[in-house]
């Protein structure tokens, strides 16, 4: 078995399973801690608040956006860019089609890929350089923040370096970094990709019970 076959085959399977089970374990673990039932008479629906809280926090409030626009643009640029790259880059669709789903869809043209990748990279770089150059960020950041940023950066970078698709080695390096990323994910702060639903939802539910319209 070649290196490429290994990182795309057995190692990928292990990484994917670790990712799915680890993430599930962690989310369930958080929920299972449980909380006391709130018996104060409610003014509104907690369940509706849970959903509303999740949606409301997608949209920054104007009064804060004037102070935080850089972070908002960087954050959205990176996250949206990453999602588009993951699900609409032609080689990714082919891989998902081949190995997991058994069906594919239309990928992006090359110019769109470059554009989206540039937006994603710009966003990630802005987020990270802000982390090293703002006293607030320097104080509150720990090694996990940096490690997660860099690992994600490497995933994106190796992917783009393999864009010519003429060397198996480059594809294999990309796959290897992805495998590492998938295994690291459930144990790390990258889990915010799932836990944000809980935190926004919990706050939203509290607000919902109080009948607050935020």
């Amino acid at each position: 078995m070649g290196f490429l076959d290994f990182v795309e085959g057995p190692l990928f399977v292990i990484a994917a399973i670790t990712f799915v089970l680890g993430a599930l374990w962690r989310v369930i673990g958080i929920i299972r801690i449980g909380r006391k039932k709130d018996i104060s008479p409610p003014k509104g629906s907690a369940a509706a608040g849970f959903i509303k809280g999740n949606l409301r926090h997608f949209f920054p409030r104007g009064i804060f956006a004037r102070r935080t626009w850089l972070h908002i643009i960087g954050g959205y640029g990176f996250h949206i860019g990453l999602f588009v790259l993951v699900f609409f880059a032609a080689p990714h669709i082919a891989f998902l089609d081949d190995r997991i789903l058994g069906f594919g869809w239309q990928g992006m043209p090359r110019w769109a890929f470059v554009l989206v990748a540039d937006v994603a990279f710009a966003g990630l770089i802005v987020l990270w350089v802000r982390r090293i150059s703002d006293p607030v960020m320097r104080l509150i950041s720990d090694w996990e923040d940096h490690f997660g940023s860099w690992l994600t950066f490497l995933v994106m970078l190796t992917g783009c370096l393999a864009m010519q698709q003429s060397h198996d080695v480059l594809r294999a390096v990309h796959m290897l970094v992805i495998d590492v990323w998938l295994i690291y994910f459930p144990f790390s702060r990258l889990m915010h990709a799932f836990t944000f639903v809980l935190s926004r939802g919990n706050t939203g539910a509290t607000y919902g019970r109080k009948g607050m319209n935020l």
Binding site: V114, A117, A122, C160, L161, H167, L170
Partner: peptide
Amino acid sequence: TSVLTSAALQGHNLFGPLFVV
């Protein structure tokens, strides 16, 4: 070298437009 330059070229072309920004 062929592998390295292929990678470097893709990377260079990708980050190039960001330099203008």
